[in-house]
Amino acid sequence: MELFLQQLFNGIMFGSTYAIVALGLTLVMGILHIPNFAHGHLYMLGGYITYFFITNLGFGYWYSLLLSMVILGFVGVVMERIVFRPLTGQPPINAFIAAIGALIFLESLALVIWGPQGMRIPNPHPQIIKMFGITMEAQRLLVVGGAAVLIVLLHLFLKKTTTGTTIEAVAQNREGAMLTGINVNRVSSMTFFISSATAAVAASFLSPIFILSPAMGAVLGMKAFIIVILGGMGSVPGAILGGYFLGLIEALGGGYISAEYKDVFAFGALILVLSIKPTGLFGKQEG
């Protein structure tokens, strides 16, 4: 039972990260129809920016997190402007190639600036908490709680503010939104800003318990991509549920059945879901 609870907690912790990273990606994919495969690499860059403020400039953890959010947000805006906007109207596969180009660029950039050696952000909350027979690091609890808060804030933003509703309007009907006078380019920039900023939050949450390295974004990026498809492109609840689902299935499948084939369970489950519901859990129409 203790083992089960422990695995459950591990699954939720990872699910939280997956959920917020996938959330940022689903906005971009659903609203702009851009298969941004470089999203995981933005996450990596966010981690390094936070590292830079904490270690090189001696800022506090939370200040660095905020700064990292803003800076990475602008990186996202710039990326949209020079990489993806010129590709409007071309087949999505071209944007996919451009995204691969962008991710190669970002990874090499990190390699050139920070070198291949793993780097570590000092853990701001190293305390160990024991509850119900399971052990938790405080920082991991923060990841779970922080992710939940972020999800609620984003939801409120999308539903309750004018800016948020414009984003949703573009998602539902791009032409219609343009006719009502919405500046679609501005919405694109904004969506990229939000999407990158959430990636920076995820990276800042996780990097104190892990190690920063230029290649760290690749796997997470691919998983986020898969979650977005699983949840249904552009669906916010789909991304959240998909994230937690993947985290849990990895922890339980990996812990109980076979660690070697951990990813096989996750991907197998996805294949199964999509063959039953070909547009994802919350998908609306044919992709």
Binding site: M29, P35, P92, F225, I226, I229, M233, L270, I271, L274, S275, P278, T279, G280, G283, E286, G287
Partner: peptide, 10 residues
Amino acid sequence: RTRGHFFAIV
């Protein structure tokens, strides 16, 4: 059974 992006991901 799937199309487009979904086919790519499967």
